[in-house]
């Protein structure tokens, strides 16, 4: 059972997804950044990347983001993989651990993609059982991220926000709101992204993700692909603004996985997220001064130094579950 509040152990500012090509630069220059998030599966072996992350961990707050647990698998989660996730958590003592509302292992095959599940009672029971098993094994609550989807299911009996809210109620987990995923799914499946966010249990949201998508032309019309390979789009920034107005300021991650840009580009995106959140959540009298942050960002925006004040030189051991 969860023993700590999952909602705010990360600093309420922007962080970036840490990928291997940026590790040496971060170790060498130690730029000011709110926090860093890594994919758990990249650190499940010994190797140079693990030792580099151990050194980085001494200077930055870390979040662990799993992509392979397959919480939506009807056949349950792989106990060996869960043990590896626990090993990573024990090793790096992250401030936060998160996974996806998805499945990625079918008939014993790892698909290396996150697939959607129907939103019905059977799936709800399965996901909750798998989340509870995970939280029990790693002895801490986790955040569950909404997926970007290209298809839905005829058998679904509830909307995704309702499904997520029920997961939170039954398991005590928190939510990771991926704003880009909401936008991509809404465009692909034809629902209202703003209404989706409005329907989520705001207090359960412990982290936000932002990323870029690509639009592909198909015989059926355009489809948005969540490729994590470009700047956050103006539409997604607008949705992020609405989300922040609704739920308040949350730790916000800039995710970028393909066509990885220079580190300063990611820091620029993180800076923009911080400026926007500051402008939205500032007291009314100071909002006028921050009005410029409400303007859409330029795709060429970069920064040498992030503006977030948080530079966690000390670890956050107090957030660890017993």
């Amino acid at each position: 059972m969860p023993t700590t509040d999952p909602r705010m152990p990360l600093p309420s500012c922007a962080g970036i997804g840490l990928r291997h090509p940026h590790m040496a630069e971060i170790l060498e220059q130690r730029p000011s950044m709110g926090w860093l998030e890594v994919h758990a599966e990249n650190y499940m072996n010994d190797g140079p990347a693990v030792s580099a992350l151990e050194r980085i961990r001494d200077h930055y707050t870390l979040s662990i983001h799993g992509v392979g647990l397959s919480l939506g698998s009807a056949k349950g989660i792989d106990e060996r993989h869960l043990a590896r996730l626990k090993m990573v958590c024990d090793r790096f003592e992250p401030a936060m651990v998160s996974e996806h509302l998805a499945w990625c292992v079918g008939d014993g095959i790892y698909l290396n993609d996150l697939l959607p599940i129907p939103f019905d009672e059977e799936a709800l029971a399965i996901v909750c059982r798998n989340i509870e098993r995970t939280q029990e094994a790693i002895r801490r609550p986790i955040l569950i991220e909404n997926l970007s989807a290209y298809v839905g299911f005829a058998r679904s009996t509830m909307a995704e926000p309702e499904f997520l809210a029920e997961i939170v109620r039954r398991t005590g987990c928190g939510l990771l709101l991926d704003v880009n995923n909401v936008y991509v799914s809404a465009q692909n499946l034809g629902f209202d992204a703003y209404a989706y966010i409005e329907a989520l249990p705001a207090a359960a949201i412990g982290e936000v993700h932002l990323a870029g998508y690509v639009e592909n032309d198909t015989p059926d019309g355009p489809v948005l692909i969540d490729n994590h390979g470009s700047h956050v789009s103006p539409d997604v920034w607008a949705l992020y603004r609405a989300a922040t107005e609704r739920i308040g300021r949350r730790p916000t991650l800039i995710e970028w996985d393909s066509d990885l840009p220079p580190l300063e580009t990611l820091m620029g995106e993180a800076m923009w997220a911080d400026l926007l959140a500051t402008a939205i959540t500032a007291p009314p009298q100071s909002r006028k001064a921050n009005r410029r942050a409400a303007l859409p960002p330029s795709a060429s925006q970069t920064a040498k130094v992030a503006v977030c004040d948080h530079h966690p030189l000390s670890r956050q051991h107090q957030m660890e579950a017993a």
Partner: peptide, 19 residues
């Protein structure tokens, strides 16, 4: 079993195969 708005569900599903 699949829904994809006005798009062909099978064609949409191929995105997962490609991924």
């Amino acid at each position: 079993s699949l829904l994809a708005g006005r798009a062909d569900p099978a064609r949409r599903f191929n995105i997962y195969r490609n991924n």
